[in-house]
Structure formats: C-alpha cells, structure tokens
C-alpha cells in the first residue's frame, strides 16, 4: 500500500536517514520510534511525499491513495473560525460533506461550543483537537500522525486512541510518532524503530517488546 525502497535523505551534506526499506500496511497501526533527531519526522514527511528522497523511492499503491498528515503545526488558519477552517479543507478536497457533518465532527473532538471562535484564540490542546478533526474529515487511506498527543489532556488522548482504532478498523494505514511509548504501544500492531539513521527494527509489537526486554 505504501512502499519505501532504499530511501535516503540528506540535507546538504548532512545525512538524516539512509537505506530505509519498509512497507506500510492497510488496516495496521505502525508506531514509529527513535531518539530525538533520529529522523522520525523526516521519514514521516517522506512518506507523505512532502519531501523528496535524495535516493530511493516512495510509492503509493495504488497511486491515487490519499494521505492525511498531522504534524507539529496543524495546517490551521488562525484567522478563520474552527468551522471555517474545516470548511476550507473540505472545499479544497472536494469532500461531499455538509456543514452539519462538520459541526458533528467538532462535537466529536469536543469543540462544538467553539465552532465560531477563531483558531487564533485556541489553546495548544484545542488547536490540536481541531487539527484532529481536519484529519478525521478526510477519511484518508493513510494517516501520518507526528506526536498527535502533544498538548492533549487525558480525555482527548482517549478520543485520539479511539479515532486511530476506528481508522484502522475501516482499513486505513496509520503511522504514529509518539514520545509516550508505554501508552501508545498498546494501540500499535507493528513497530518501526529508527536508530543510527536507519531502520533498526521493523516487525510486530510482540517481537519488539521481547527485544526491548
């Protein structure tokens, strides 16, 4: 569904990752782990094709697959209200969803009361929840989430977990970068571990936990 073959990325002469070969499977939650500066975010951007690899290929199968991306910045326009933000991304992607559906989504992430407030006044957690709503709106085949739990309270985290499970159950491939391994490992089916700028482990969660122990 999403294949990376011998992918390498350098910024100038500085190598960030090299020789990464892996497959992201549908209906599976992949946990992408690694130390600070291991190249997790770079790898995720390569998967989203927001960056082009210096060597190797990133292939979507079939090529028409859509990916939704949630990074450190949430692709939000601070000047627009929560609802207007969702409306823009809906129109931009030609999704056949009504305003009622958007309000329902906002309700799901706990922002129903703030639908008509500008995103500029949102707290970090609220903005993150709004970004989550944007990702959910898309119903993409591939979900790439870069530390989506940042700034979320316990309730919102549960919500995030539920949504990730739902996405998996409808057949989406999820790649999740997290700093809260203990929490999120329960959610994962597979683990990708980046170490020394390359993939040190690519397999199921059980094997990873054994190796770690």
């Amino acid at each position: 569904m999403l294949h990376l073959r011998d992918v390498a990325k350098r910024y100038g002469a500085v190598p960030v990752i090299r020789n990464v070969t892996c497959t992201i499977h549908p209906g599976t939650v992949h946990l992408l782990l690694g130390d600070n500066g291991a190249g997790k975010t770079t790898l995720l951007r390569l998967m989203a094709r927001l960056a082009s690899p210096t060597a190797g290929t990133v292939e979507y199968d079939p090529p028409s697959r859509q990916c939704a991306f949630l990074g450190h910045a949430g692709f939000l326009y601070p000047g627009l209200t929560a609802l207007e933000n969702l409306r823009f991304w809906r129109d931009a992607q030609r999704l056949p969803k009504s305003d009622a559906h958007l309000l329902e989504l906002l309700d799901r992430v706990g922002l129903a009361a703030h639908a008509h407030r500008r995103a500029a006044v949102f707290s970090r957690g609220m903005a993150q929840r709004l970004s989550l709503a944007r990702v959910l709106l898309q119903q993409a085949d591939i979900l790439l989430l870069d530390e989506p739990g940042t700034g979320l309270d316990a309730a919102s985290r549960t919500l995030l977990h539920d949504e990730v499970k739902q996405a998996r159950d409808r057949g989406a491939a999820v790649v999740l970068i997290t700093h809260d391994v203990a929490q999120d490992v329960r959610l994962a089916d597979r683990v990708l571990l980046l170490r020394n700028r390359t993939l040190a482990y690519d397999g199921d969660v059980g094997g990873f936990q054994e190796a770690a122990a």
């Binding site: 028409s64 326009y77 601070p78 931009a92 992607q93």
Partner: peptide
C-alpha cells in the same frame, strides 16, 4: 504569509489537486 503560520502550505501540497 497566510500559509505560513500554521504550515498550511504543507496541507495544500497534500491535496490531490
């Protein structure tokens, strides 16, 4: 500049259009 605050530029790049 509108696309810079929330890195919305990246979001636009991900669109199928």
């Amino acid at each position: 500049a509108l696309e810079e605050t929330g890195e919305a530029r990246l979001g636009l790049l991900l669109l199928p259009a």
